[in-house]
Design a protein around this nucleic acid. Sequence first.
DNA 1: AGCGGAAATTTACAGTGGAAACATTGAAGG
DNA 2: CCTTCAATGTTTCCACTGTAAATTTCCGCT
Lengths: 198, 198
Amino acid sequence: MEAERSYHHGNLREAFLDAARRLLERDGLTGLSLRKCAEVVGVSHTAPKNHFGNMAGLLTAIVTQGYSELAQMMTADLPADADRDRRRETALLGYIAFAEQNPSLYELMFSRDRVVNDDPDLMRQVGACFVVLADISTDLGWHQGTVDEMNGKGQVALWSLVHGYAQLVTAGRFKKDNMKGLSILDILPALGAIKTTD
Amino acid sequence: MEAERSYHHGNLREAFLDAARRLLERDGLTGLSLRKCAEVVGVSHTAPKNHFGNMAGLLTAIVTQGYSELAQMMTADLPADADRDRRRETALLGYIAFAEQNPSLYELMFSRDRVVNDDPDLMRQVGACFVVLADISTDLGWHQGTVDEMNGKGQVALWSLVHGYAQLVTAGRFKKDNMKGLSILDILPALGAIKTTD
DNA sequence: AGCGGAAATTTACAGTGGAAACATTGAAGG
DNA sequence: CCTTCAATGTTTCCACTGTAAATTTCCGCT
């Protein structure tokens, strides 16, 4: 039983997800197609319809998987008694590492119309990622006001900073001489040093 | 002369750009096609080849236009004697407004493989945007170190924050109760209040 | 044994981008 | 004026894509 190796092919859903992921990172978004995936898996090109419905469904499944892995990357290899600094560092470095290892997938994870963004499973995984970041931001502490008084500003600010950095780097929008020896760990304190006048 | 209304159609390049922009925001990235653009403009579907080469060329031209408009939005309606706060506010609000008014284009502006990202014109416009943000970050001032000593950290950090916020908002990745009455103007000082331990 | 339904295939079709050959037009130069 | 010529568009064709519909295969169940 176990719902494994369900039929003819045996776990075609997983096989398709794997093939799509590999094609995505090898040939980019424009090089990904249902028919290529089907050929790689060794199955007819309409087979995925049973499992994903259509292309948007397949991409949604991939993206959902992506958010799940992203959350894992942020909490990987953490001993239970890790201190504040260690947890922050792991989360930030894990986030950026995921984006750099899966740049095309990462881009797809913020697409507006290729993915059904109101899919319940997807929304749950997105929420899980947000929670991890929210915990980190709570651990960071704030100079002014409690977390409640911040009214979510800190969480929104933190995700904005990390996502922006991740995508600008993977999209090649920073010149190399701007990025020499710079990591996300330098960026966060740099913004903390901003002198605003209000 | 003036290189205007150059041939049969008269300024087909501009017409195509306009049509593509409108289709892009109306139907999203997936709904944009050369043939639809051509039909709107009233021309054969291979006509754009002379002006853009291929689809990537058209998208590159649109994205280049986008960066140019983004830079304009950040400096619009600014009197020459505007003070530091006014300039910062205008730039940040202008940036977010552009993203919200052109969400699909904004997404495309950070695509990895739909656009030829090493196009010289495109790189120049990207650089122009970065300069505007760099100036703003200089105007902000920093608690520690000069701009040079910061070694570009501040510029990288600022663009990361603003881009992240823009895309997360337009991609609908923040829940609405997190965003109630929140604007980019609240986010920047919130990050400045981060208490890091190094 | 045979029924039922899930899983996969076959077939067909409309839409897409691109290449190649051809047609049209305005401008430049004798 | 008339010819060339190059730029601009069109026609035609092709390979590829996603999707729908009808059909077939095969396992589990009674």
